[in-house]
Amino acid sequence: MKAVRILPLFAVVSPILFTLTWFILGFISKGYTIYDIRIEPYSSVTQPISGLGMGSTAIIMNSAFIICGILLFVGIIGIFSNIGEDGRLSARRASMALLILSPIGLVVCGIFDLESTFLHSIGFLLSTGSTILSFLITGLYFRGIPRLRKLGSGLIVGSPLTLILVILFFLNFDPIAAGEGHGIAGIASRLLAVEVLFWFAAMGLLTYKHSEPSRAGFAFN
């Protein structure tokens, strides 16, 4: 069906919208207050993207987390609905289930801001850290589909790259130092977000281009 064919493009729209949102708001935010501590001004170099979910930009950034999470969720369903059955149902289900953790994480980050530290951290790990495994499993699955073999190889490379960027973020994220305008946690946060969302956009675009409309169906059929 034509409606099913375009669903993978939601996985392209989501990263673009999310990236544009944090990029623009980074110039608008004047800072924010967390645990009665005022952090001002906001710096895209020292402050992570989640800092934009506080203060005057909170409603826009948190809405973007939620909306982009929903769009990405739909896009992932569309990706696997356009691949067509290849007899490896278990690998297909595992790949999709793992990838879906990322949009769930985005929604969690949008609902629980930085002051809800534990839940927001869970959202962060779901949206980014989970892709260390999901990109690897999905890459191996795509490697078995001739038209998606190169994409599969790229995802396999993306798995350790994501791990490196996650480690880089945690090594650089010191809330106190960031609040005082020191460090590069903001850069690390943005590199990680761009890298992870790039692979989702690539999956959406390439599965749309190489879709098999005559065989497309919902992923768990």
Rank of each mutant, 00 (worst) to 15 (best):
D36R: 03
T57I: 05
R38D: 14
P41S: 00
E40N: 04
R38S: 15
S56N: 10
A64K: 07
V45L: 09
A64M: 09
L71Y: 07
V45Y: 10
S81L: 03
M61Q: 13
I70Y: 05
S43M: 06
I49C: 05
G51A: 01
T57C: 04
Y35H: 13
I83C: 01
I79H: 01
I77V: 14
G78M: 05
R88G: 00
N82C: 10
A91L: 14
I60N: 04
E40Y: 11
S44E: 12
S29N: 10
E40I: 03
I60V: 15
I67C: 11
M54T: 09
A64S: 15
I77H: 11
S81A: 15
N82P: 07
G31Y: 04
I79Y: 00
Y32H: 13
G69K: 05
Y35M: 08
V45F: 12
I77D: 11
F23V: 12
G78L: 04
Y42Q: 00
G26H: 05
I67V: 15
I60H: 01
A58G: 05
A64F: 02
S43H: 05
S56M: 09
G78F: 07
I37G: 15
G78E: 06
F80Y: 11
S29D: 09
P48R: 04
G26A: 06
P41N: 00
R88A: 12
T57K: 02
V45R: 11
F73H: 13
P48K: 03
I70F: 08
R38W: 02
E85K: 13
E85S: 13
S81E: 11
Y35N: 15
I70A: 15
S44H: 06
N82V: 02
P48M: 01
A58F: 06
A64G: 13
